[in-house]
Design a protein around this nucleic acid. Structure first.
Lengths: 243, 243
DNA sequence: CAAAGACTGTCGAGAACTCGACACAAATGC
DNA sequence: GCATTTGTGTCGAGTTCTCGACAGTCTTTG
């Protein structure tokens, strides 16, 4: 049975030449991941990789007191658990599904076999690792220097790039956790952004009204990370529109 | 001519089995890097890897306004430019010598050849990448959550682990840059730490008096990152005490 | 030795954010 | 339909850190 055409595909997979793609294709399973689904906790063995077609997966660093701060995000330009293709390893972070996500899933051992056979796949893993590292080091600086308002906008923009809708389901409480700030601070920031007409929000839902506005308030980090992905990861060569 | 015995060796190199070490040894050059030496700027081609024997190299993320925030550090437990062993690439960060550093240097292409021949070296690069990534994601959370005082202590402890002395040469001004805070804030924090008797400082020099004290004030991030390196990187199997 | 430069100490106003508290509103479950 | 849970709005005191300013001190250099 054939699944419907997918409007958007994972960029890493769609950039693979056909011969290389055939190495992984038979092992890919299409899955729908609901919001809040925990994919990895720190210390878990990385036994599966996920290539999102749309949606956002967050990598979160856990602290001893239970705080969980977002350290990077993964969308259709990347993959979760890709480093497990190189060798078995434990997750360093919590990986949690941020927005409902369609993804292609593959077992780490099967991905590893393809990785051994295909130079293109090895390059893909390598470049993705580099881009994800770039994402992390930019966030280190961002969290040290930039206001909650700027980081809030950066987060929304990054999310918006990776979903197909202008509406994001998230509570202010959860966003506060991810940014590592108080909920009351997020409430205040959300209010001023709404007054400026850049977003509209209601209980658990944010509508993005003006990307331009958000880009103006956001820090440079949004663009830096985005360009880094563009530079490192090849553009799609083929649109593989089936599951 | 034989160089004097080295009291400390780079841990990555000394953990390599003899056969694997022989692949890189002929190409290693011992160098002394003075404080402040710029090894890479963002965008530079990564053409050389450095394995510090002692001393600290900082990876710094540059912002558009010229700010430079430390996103990770590299000492004898790691190496700079190691990802260049896998494939040619550009540096994402500024890499600057923090304290006078003795290091073994090797060209990226020569390291790449060894990397192709030796599975042990590939594992070394892979594990180091993972540890460095862990360092970065922890710092993302640390900068979002922890006080300047805690981060100051964390920085001193990390530095102390990687040098052979209890004295660190650094100005408060420079440290303020690295932590991404005002100099006056660093001055205030340094004063309270000195009053507690944990450090002593004078113009451009900090003496570490009480590691225990610093550990108590530091955040958990110091230990988390340290343990991560311990877990991922093997302990020395041989002490190679010559250059 | 004098001058310049680099580093530190201190002050104070103000902004950003924390932290606890409580009221209210919307969604959910029975 | 009612009770419970969950998410939001707001308030206010308090803390941390910013940002500019300026004085003082140590070091280097000519």
């Amino acid at each position: 049975m054939q699944r419907p055409l997918l409007s958007v595909q994972n960029r890493l997979l769609s950039a693979l030449p056909p011969d290389d793609y055939r190495l992984v294709a038979p092992h890919l399973t299409q899955v729908d991941l609901e919001r809040g689904r925990l994919l990895y906790e720190p210390g878990d063995r990385v036994d599966t990789a996920y290539f999102p077609h749309d949606g956002v997966i967050s990598l979160m660093t856990l602290m001893e007191n239970g705080a969980a701060i977002e350290s990077a995000t993964i969308g259709r330009e990347g993959a979760l658990g890709l480093m497990g293709a190189v060798s078995p390893r434990q997750s360093l972070s919590r990986a949690i599904v941020q927005t409902p996500t369609r993804a292609a899933r593959i077992g780490a051992s099967q991905l590893h076999e393809a990785w051994e056979k295909s130079a293109k796949i090895r390059v893909m893993v390598d470049m993705h690792t580099e881009a994800l590292f770039g994402h992390a080091v930019q966030s280190v600086a961002c969290n040290a220097l930039h206001s909650v308002e700027a980081r809030f906008c950066r987060w929304l923009l990054t999310c918006h790039d990776r979903i197909t809708s202008d509406t994001v389901a998230l509570t202010q409480e959860f966003l506060a956790d991810m940014l590592g700030v108080q909920r009351t601070t997020v409430t205040a920031v959300a209010r001023t952004l709404q007054e400026k007409g850049y977003i509209r929000y209601r209980r658990g839902v944010v509508d993005i009204i003006s990307r331009e506005g958000l880009e103006a308030v956001s820090c440079e980090c949004y663009e830096v990370v985005r360009r880094n992905y563009e530079r490192l990861l090849p553009q799609p060569s083929v649109d593989r529109a089936r599951g």
